[in-house]
């Protein structure tokens, strides 16, 4: 019997796996943003001494994983599993990064929700007793994403007001069984939701209904209220999608005053990114450096992270298909174990 599942789509982590450590490696533009002092490494340019942006992206991911492991005093091959993904075709960044580590690897694609997907699966692996330390990482690079999904980077295209800036950055999280720290209590696996948005420059609007769907399901399944969390944090809706989500939540009578979005925390207002940040790296470089870090000082010490993804493909866009969205939610709680008191 599925004893660890509650409600329609949520699961309970009985052993409460712990986010033992994290690291973020980012590009130069992110390195000028409001979180600049929190990042472990800032690349001096978008090429990172490599001969292509794709290789630079792989290096970012590799370094973030190594640094996260180092903080927990672990060697790369001591991971029981590595879970990772990115935005590029055939998830090449994750695949080629995993080549470096001698760790069992599962490649994931959930667009920008990949980090949440990886964390949920890491939690399941640990809670099921299949491993003790699992790495979850996701990564994006502005230039590799633009040339694959939109236009050549040197083409004189006017970006629309709703467009978001794909983050150049990678975040890695080491999930372990443990007692003290940021621990995963529940997760809600999202459904693919499509509200017919076709504009590839307005992915926030495409993802907002998915975020609503998952947050609502999470609250119903767990019997919690939005106010039980200090923050409910969406992955990368950006300014436009965030406004859409607030409107949608108001219509459903869900309070949204503790709602925030990772895409609003990466860049400063003067960085001309229009609707904020997006990409696999967006939530990955914000969750740890911005939220996990200070969680112990919050009144409720709880947050809900809803990683959002726009399942966009240039191929289906050309065929006139709309952009489906998905969101996966994880509830985190800061707890202090018996032994460490």
């Amino acid at each position: 019997m599925a004893v660890k599942k509650i409600g329609g789509q949520s699961l309970v982590f009985e052993s409460r796996p712990c986010v033992a450590s994290w690291a973020a490696v980012v590009g130069p533009m992110e390195g000028e943003g409001p979180l600049k002092s929190e990042y472990d490494m800032i690349m001096k340019d978008s090429l990172f001494d490599q001969d292509s942006w794709e290789k630079a992206e792989q290096k970012m991911m590799q370094y973030s994983i190594e640094l996260a492991l180092k903080k927990a005093d672990r060697l790369p091959w001591e991971m029981d599993y590595l879970l990772g993904g990115d935005l590029l075709n055939q998830i090449i960044t994750a695949n080629f990064t995993a080549r470096v580590f001698g760790a069992p690897f599962l490649g994931l694609y959930g667009a920008c929700s990949t980090l949440a997907e990886g964390m949920i699966l890491a939690g399941i692996l640990i809670d099921g007793g299949y491993g003790d330390s699992v790495g979850a990482a996701s990564c994006s690079h502005h230039d590799t994403a633009e040339r694959q999904l939109r236009f050549p980077t040197e083409m004189g295209v006017q970006r629309s007001q709703t467009a978001q800036w794909t983050v150049t950055g990678s975040g890695a999280y080491l999930i372990r069984s443990g007692e003290t720290g940021v621990r995963m209590t529940h997760a809600t696996v999202g459904k693919v939701v499509d509200y017919g948005v076709k504009n590839a420059s307005d992915m926030g609007s495409a993802m907002a209904p998915a975020a609503l769907d998952t947050i609502r399901a999470h609250l119903e399944d767990t019997g919690r209220n939005a106010a039980d969390y200090d923050y409910i944090i969406t992955g990368d809706l950006g300014r436009r999608g965030f406004d859409s989500l607030k409107t949608l939540m108001a219509e459903e009578d869900l309070p949204a005053n503790n709602l925030t979005d990772c895409g609003l925390h990466v860049y400063g207002g003067n960085q001309d990114t229009h609707s904020g940040a997006s990409g696999c790296g967006c939530s990955a470089i914000v969750m740890g450096p911005r939220f996990f870090k200070e969680m112990r000082r919050w009144p409720r010490k709880k947050l809900l992270f809803a990683g959002t993804g726009a399942l966009l493909s240039p191929l289906t866009s050309f065929q006139g298909e709309s952009i489906p969205g998905i969101a996966h939610a994880i509830a985190f709680e800061w707890t202090e174990g018996e032994n460490s008191k």
Binding site: F151, G156, V157, Q158, S160, N199, A200, S201
Partner: peptide, 11 residues
């Protein structure tokens, strides 16, 4: 034409 039509008009 680019700004006032509902379509995404590319170069």
């Amino acid at each position: 034409c680019m700004d006032l039509t509902p379509f995404q008009v590319t170069p």
